[in-house]
Amino acid sequence: MNILRKFRWAFFVFVAPSFLIYTYLVIFPIVSSMAYSLTKWNAISPAVFVGLNNYEALFKSKDFAIVMTNTWIGLGLALVIQVGFGLLISFLLYQTKAGYRAFRAMAFLPVVLAPAAVALMFVLIFNSDIGPVNKILESIGLSGLKRNWLSDKDIVFYTVLSPMIYQFIGLYVIVLLAGMQSIPPEILESSAIDGAGSFRTFTMIIVPMIWDIIFICVTLITAGSFKAFEHSYLMTWGGPGVRSAFLGVYMYLRTFIDANFGLGCAIGMVILFISLAVTMIFRAVVRRLDYQS
């Protein structure tokens, strides 16, 4: 607004405090993290410069390869399931009048729970000797599907992933629902007049209208996937070995259990780089789609 632009001091009053705090505690640490990632340091004795050794060690490590694969699969599944279910449930809610508030509240309920609490719940639920999952499978005659949810190396990762995905679907339901509700009603009315069924309304009108909101969800899911920590750490310590570890857990273990702070920073840098890169790619894709439609 032109009228405000004459207050040149405004930047210093309104922005400077946040700018300083944010720069000092969020941006500056990234730079020093980069510096630490080039050292060998156990946080007790002085750091020793080792060049790119940490990165080299990382990319040679088999464990790191497993963790990277886990992270990618986790991201892929989270995107498909959370956006998919998010769109489905929010669209259903959007059309619903009776019970709308109750359904909405229940959908969002797990989002407000501490991930640590959810992880503690699920470790009990998945315990294959005493937990309800195997008991339910048994009671409905599907004993063949019983698994050692937290130990089977081919399954444990998905076991740990499930509460993560489950917990945050509700957030995307609410965000997408908000997006749908902000679509001008006239547009939908005209589509109804055209006789479009709800499926067509959904794919042809609603989804294109809320592309930017879907993109926000994708961004949040991506950021969330790379930050993931509690579920894996609390349920399995990332194990057995690193079979159920994500980058975040791997970093924690290497940093605080192994006392290898340099390597920990290197992992942190990898996390940062990948999450920025992925978001950029998504952004480019969304721009492209926007452009085409």
Binding site: V15, S18, Y22, Y24, L25, V26, I27, F28, P29, I30, S32, S33, Y36, T219, L220, T222, A223, F226, K227, F229, L247, G248, M251, Y252, T255, F261, G264, C265, I267, G268, M269, I271, L272, S275, L276, T279
Partner: peptide, 24 residues
């Protein structure tokens, strides 16, 4: 750019800044 600068923080995983924050 100022807006971008500020909201970039949403994308920064805490793990990337955990150790320096601890040092700070």
């Amino acid at each position: 750019w100022l807006f971008t600068y500020f909201i970039a923080g949403i994308l920064i995983p805490v793990q990337a800044i955990l150790i320096p924050l601890f040092v700070t």
